[in-house]
Simulated scan of single mutants.
Amino acid sequence: MPTPAKPYIALVSEKKSHRTKEELNLRKQGEEALSTGVAMKERHEVKNNPIAHKEFLRLNKLLKEISKNDAINEAVINRYCLIYAECHDFEEKRESFYKDLQELTSNKGELIDSEEISLSTYYKMKHNMQTTIINLDKQVQSKRKMLLDIEKENIMTIAAALRCIPKKVEDEKDDPLLIALRGG
């Protein structure tokens, strides 16, 4: 698989490109055509969620560094931040149930000896907590898969956009080889 084309900014900053000024200008115009020129905005629901808001600010800063914090990516980034916050919430709930399960297990003897709960009630409670932990873990895994899918697609979209930009200037003249092959 060939190396993807470098963006205009990288080519200019390296100052050692073999491309002509025409090719560089064409590349710059192609990259500019792929953006709206409008910065991403944070949605209301993301602003109101502290974890999503923090993630949005982090991503916005990173995307601004590479000149990709464009409004065209706004919906995906906002959705990503909300899913990230949901994932974090499920992880906290899972940890809370896990701590409760550990506490129940460590206090088993005391609870049964003092006759606060019966042995069957203890095992039912333990089973219910374990089931809840497993269900929360399934939710976390599905949220993580969503995050990974968005991350992959976002990276692939940027790479695909860069590949769509023509690398070379189309010559106005006909290629002598093509003329000869056409019989002219």
Rank of each mutant, 00 (worst) to 15 (best):
Y8W: 12
L59H: 07
L63T: 02
V38P: 00
L119D: 10
K168H: 10
E32P: 01
T157G: 04
Q141S: 08
S106C: 10
N107M: 14
H127N: 09
I155K: 13
N49I: 04
R19D: 07
L148T: 10
Q29Y: 05
L111P: 08
E91Y: 02
T36I: 01
I134A: 15
L119Y: 02
K99A: 02
T157E: 15
E86L: 05
G183C: 07
I133G: 07
A180I: 13
L63C: 04
I133N: 10
A160H: 14
N49L: 05
H88G: 00
L178E: 13
N73H: 11
E116L: 11
L59W: 09
H18K: 12
I72K: 13
E45G: 01
I150R: 10
L101N: 06
A10I: 08
Q102P: 00
I165R: 02
I134L: 15
P2I: 05
N48A: 09
A52R: 07
S106W: 11
E14C: 06
V140L: 09
K168D: 04
I66G: 01
K145L: 11
E32G: 01
N135P: 00
A39Y: 15
A85G: 00
E86N: 04
M125K: 14
I134M: 13
K41V: 05
T36R: 10
E92N: 06
E31A: 03
G30T: 01
E116Q: 08
P176V: 09
M125P: 02
N128H: 15
R79L: 10
S118H: 06
S13G: 02
R94D: 04
V169E: 09
S120C: 00
V46S: 11
K99S: 06
A180H: 12
M146W: 11
L147G: 12
L101I: 04
Y123Q: 15
R19G: 01
T121A: 13
E103I: 09
A160C: 12
P50M: 05
L147M: 15
I150M: 15
Q141D: 11
Q141K: 14
P4I: 06
K6T: 04
H53D: 08
Q141T: 04
E172A: 14
S13C: 09
K168A: 08
I134W: 07
I117A: 05
E22I: 02
T121F: 07
D70Q: 07
K16W: 03
I117N: 11
R94I: 02
D174Y: 14
G30Q: 10
T132A: 13
N69T: 01
S35T: 10
A71F: 00
N60M: 04
L177A: 04
E151L: 09
Q29H: 02
L177H: 02
L148Q: 14
L181M: 13
A71L: 02
E32R: 04
A180K: 15
E151W: 12
K28S: 03
I77G: 00
